[in-house]
């Protein structure tokens, strides 16, 4: 059991999302940075789709009511366990009564707290993710609040060494896989979508200009600012199904990128779709930061996904071996 002592707005319980119900208007939800959630779960010995806490407002503070192996991944929040500094992407055991404290990260946007066993909230349509739009799932269908007590399911096997252990984060483990500009701006790979060509010359500007993530951005979508894009001629569109990553251009001309809590249907013209392998980076992009889009292909998108899968597989294979070896060596 953990006890929430300090919490900003909009921190929620998330797993990998509620797939398969868009046809009845149910938003998929799920972690904005699914790689961080998966790695956090693997670190504590959970299945990679167990529910953890997505923390996007700080400071965040919890107390462990019992001994508990936990992992922190995603943004580096200068985490302290009873004042002891913890490295990012780290797994360690907390003793009863210890307090974990996270500060506002200097880079990246979201941290993930995974607990051995997984957070014990009811499965709703196959997922424990909080649906803020529908007010169901997660903990009472709402963001976490000070005073909440969250039960944790019985844990499994991995025991980290006394000082813990960690994982090399994906961008550092695969530096050539994820492009950034010379000035450090995020470069997102995207595939042109249905109405791309209807923007005529403006479609070129979509790819060439730098966009800023505005403060009107959240788990539902990111609204970008930059020189507006206009259709060559007005078109009437029927509503269509939406998935995370779709970049729409509303009448104002500044694009919106749909994210984890995206509506299931919409009607603005579609400019492009960000590849799945880059969505986690967008999930970690901060309000006010700059991004640009680079035209990609299905082949490249699949190659990026395969590389991410290989990174996860490597962790799944190597972690238990290292954990067991360290236990054996400390028993000498």
């Amino acid at each position: 059991m953990i006890h929430v002592l300090g919490c900003g707005p909009l921190n929620t319980i998330q797993d990998l999302g509620r797939a398969g119900y868009r046809n009845i208007g149910v938003t998929a939800t799920g972690a904005m940075d699914p790689i961080a959630l998966k790695v956090g779960n693997l670190l504590v010995g959970n299945d990679e789709d167990a529910a953890g806490i997505e923390i996007q407002t700080f400071p965040f503070r919890i107390e462990f009511e019992q001994a508990q192996v936990f992992a922190l991944t995603g943004a580096d929040c200068a985490a302290r366990l009873d004042g002891q500094d913890l490295p990012p992407w780290w797994c360690i055991r907390a003793e009863p009564g210890q307090v974990l404290e996270l500060s506002t990260p200097m880079k990246s946007a979201r941290a993930y707290l995974c607990l051995q066993g997984g957070i014990d909230v009811p499965l709703v349509m196959g997922s424990r993710s909080t649906s803020l739009r529908g007010s169901f799932g997660g903990h009472e269908g709402r963001p976490l609040a000070v005073g909440d007590i969250l039960p944790v399911m019985a844990g499994t096997t991995i025991s980290p060494p006394v000082n813990g252990f960690g994982i090399v984060p994906p961008a550092q483990a695969m530096p050539n896989l994820f492009p950034v500009s010379d000035t450090g701006d995020l470069i997102l790979r995207a595939i042109p979508a249905g109405e791309h060509d209807l923007f005529g010359d403006d479609s070129e500007r979509f790819w060439s200009q730098t966009w800023k993530i505005t403060s009107q951005s959240d788990r539902t979508g990111y609204r970008l600012s930059g020189a507006p894009l206009q259709l060559s001629a007005p078109v009437e569109l029927r509503s269509y199904g939406i998935i995370p990553g779709i970049v729409q251009v509303p009448p104002g001309g500044e694009p919106i990128i749909q994210m984890s809590d995206a509506n299931t249907a919409g009607g603005y013209p579609k400019m492009a779709g960000v590849i799945d392998g880059d969505l986690w980076r967008l999930g970690q992009a901060r309000i006010g930061s700059k991004i640009s889009f680079r035209q990609s292909s299905l082949t490249e998108a699949l190659a990026v996904e395969r590389a991410i899968d290989a990174y996860i597989d490597d962790i799944r294979r190597t972690l238990p071996l290292v954990a067991n070896a360290l236990v054996a060596m400390t028993k000498r």
């Binding site: 490295p87 992407w89 060494p161 000082n163 960690g166 994982i167 090399v168 490597d314």
Partner: peptide, 18 residues
């Protein structure tokens, strides 16, 4: 005493040097 002063990398895993 007890500080993490460096790491040893085994594949993707980081083990602390204490």
């Amino acid at each position: 005493k007890g500080d993490i002063v460096a790491f040893v990398k085994v594949g993707p895993v980081l083990v602390p040097v204490i």
